[in-house]
């Protein structure tokens, strides 16, 4: 591919990646795009991406072909290979001729050669000291990858990394916000139930609350569940256990 033609494609790819970064973008879609574009823009035959899961282990997330998926899954199972090395060291592993790495990753190399790959490169997905995965590139022909291709591939990996870290922060925010709404709704339900109990019994709010809490405890129920039952009418204030009574005694 002509240098200028590749530059145009590369620039388009970055625009395309940025374009996917809407608030609720899909990580797998993004990384699949990166894998596919690596194959189109760089002098490589196949590409795959692994990401670290919350539990700490790597998972194969995106791949440009089934062969790469198979090789990468094998790499994880056999616990040896370039992606694992790039991930654990945070440094690139480039231009590894598969015929000559037998000593380093014997099982991985024979599996990759069995899929017609001749060389492999793995780049860490890394930002500010945090490594979240690795991008691996496979070639079916011999020869070292050009320096400019390595730089371009690392740039693609970097953009994807920034996007994913941003996405995780946003997901975390979403989760906390949902928890906050949930907690506020529980508060509301409890206050409503206090009102129902107060009206039905003539007690004041504090006494009504104590009555509700006493009943919930006696029945090993969460306060909010007892409150919900009061609101939907399945638990009548008249049926409450009175203070001093205990079902378990």
């Amino acid at each position: 591919m002509e240098g200028s033609e590749r530059e145009v494609l590369l620039a388009r790819t970055f625009v395309e990646i940025v374009d996917t970064l809407v608030d609720d973008f899909d990580v797998v879609d993004l990384l699949t795009l990166v894998a596919d574009r690596c194959v189109e823009v760089l002098e490589v035959s196949a590409a795959g991406l692994m990401l670290v899961a919350p539990e700490g282990d790597l998972r194969v997330v995106a791949y440009s072909s089934e062969a790469v998926r198979a090789v990468e899954l094998f790499e994880l199972q056999s616990e040896e290979g370039p992606s694992l090395d790039a991930f654990s060291t945070g440094a690139p592993v480039v231009n590894q001729d598969l015929e000559r790495v037998n000593g380093r990753w014997p099982r991985f190399a024979s599996k990759a050669i069995g899929c017609d790959f001749r060389s492999v490169h793995a780049l860490p997905m890394r930002l500010r000291g945090v490594t979240i995965g690795a991008l691996s590139l496979f070639r079916t022909h011999e020869g070292a990858m050009e320096e400019s291709d390595v730089i371009a591939a690392q740039a693609l990996a970097d953009v994807a990394t920034v996007a994913i870290l941003h996405h995780r922060a946003a997901s975390e925010a979403q989760l906390v916000n949902e928890q906050l709404n949930h907690a506020l709704n529980s508060r509301i339900v409890i206050e409503q139930a206090k009102g129902v109990v107060a009206e039905a019994t003539g007690l004041d709010m504090e006494q009504a609350f104590n009555r509700l809490r006493h009943h919930a405890r006696n029945h090993n129920q969460r306060l909010v569940d007892a409150a919900r039952a009061v609101i939907d009418g399945t638990l009548k204030p008249e049926a409450f256990d009175l203070p001093g009574s205990s079902r378990r005694s």
Partner: peptide, 9 residues
């Protein structure tokens, strides 16, 4: 919300 509970009843 307390008042809502009372009025509902």
């Amino acid at each position: 919300h307390q008042a809502s509970g009372m009025v509902a009843t």
